[in-house]
C-alpha cells in the first residue's frame, strides 16, 4: 500500500513536469497541444476514497494552471472528470467495475480506449470552453477540442501500453 502511495505521488509530479515543460510547447500545426497529465486521473486506483481523489485532481489541475497562466481552467476540467469518472467506468467496463476488481493493466484494450476517450473529450471540452469563455466561438472550441483530444488519446494510450507492468 505504501509503495502505491509513493508511486502515485511520483506520478503526480512527473506528469506535471512533463506537461508544463514539454507538452505545453509542442504546438503541433500551430496550436495543437496534448494534455497527457490527465493520465493521473484516468489511472488513479479505483477502490480509493472519492473525496481524496477529487481533491487531488483539483490540485493537479491547479498546478498546471499556475505553470501555464490559465486561471482555473485545468482545475475545473480535472475536478469534473474526477467527479464523473465512476459513471464512465461503469459504462466502459460494465461488470468488472461492479465487482470492484478492476486493474487497468489487465483490462481489454478496446474498453480502455473507450474509457480514455470519453474522459479526455469531456476534459478538453470543459477546458477549452473556459479558456475561450465565449459561447459564440463554439466552432473554435469544438475544433480545438477535437484535435487536442485525438492527440491526447493517442499519447495516453501509448504511454499506458509502454509503462504497464503486466506480469502474468
Amino acid at each position: 500500500m505504501n509503495s502505491l502511495t509513493l508511486h502515485s505521488i511520483f506520478r503526480f509530479f512527473l506528469l506535471i513536469l512533463v506537461q508544463v515543460l514539454i507538452c505545453n510547447h509542442i504546438n503541433f500545426a500551430g496550436s495543437v497541444n496534448p494534455y497527457p497529465y490527465v493520465l493521473f486521473i484516468l489511472l488513479f486506483p479505483v477502490n480509493n476514497n472519492r473525496t481524496l481523489f477529487i481533491f487531488l485532481s483539483f490540485m493537479l489541475g491547479l498546478f498546471v494552471d499556475i505553470f501555464s497562466d490559465s486561471g482555473g481552467v485545468h482545475a475545473a476540467a480535472c475536478v469534473t472528470i474526477a467527479f464523473v469518472r465512476p459513471t464512465v467506468l461503469k459504462f466502459a467496463f460494465g461488470m468488472m467495475y461492479e465487482h470492484q476488481s478492476i486493474k487497468f493493466s489487465n483490462t481489454e484494450f478496446g474498453n480502455r480506449v473507450i474509457y480514455f476517450s470519453i474522459l479526455i473529450f469531456i476534459h478538453h471540452f470543459i477546458m477549452f470552453t473556459m479558456e475561450i469563455f465565449n459561447i459564440s466561438n463554439i466552432i473554435l472550441i469544438l475544433q480545438k477540442t477535437l484535435f487536442s483530444s485525438i492527440f491526447t488519446i493517442i499519447l495516453c494510450v501509448l504511454i499506458s501500453i509502454l509503462f504497464s507492468n503486466k506480469q502474468q
Binding site: 473525496t51 477529487i54 481533491f55 483539483f58 489541475g61 491547479l62 494552471d65 497562466d69 490559465s70 486561471g71 482555473g72 481552467v73 482545475a75 475545473a76 475536478v79 469534473t80 474526477a82 467527479f83 473556459m130 469563455f133
Partner: peptide, 16 residues
Amino acid sequence: LFLLLFVISLALTIQS
C-alpha cells in the same frame, strides 16, 4: 466537495 472546488476554479478563471 466537487461543487466547491468547481466554483473555486470557475472564480479563478473569471478573475483571469
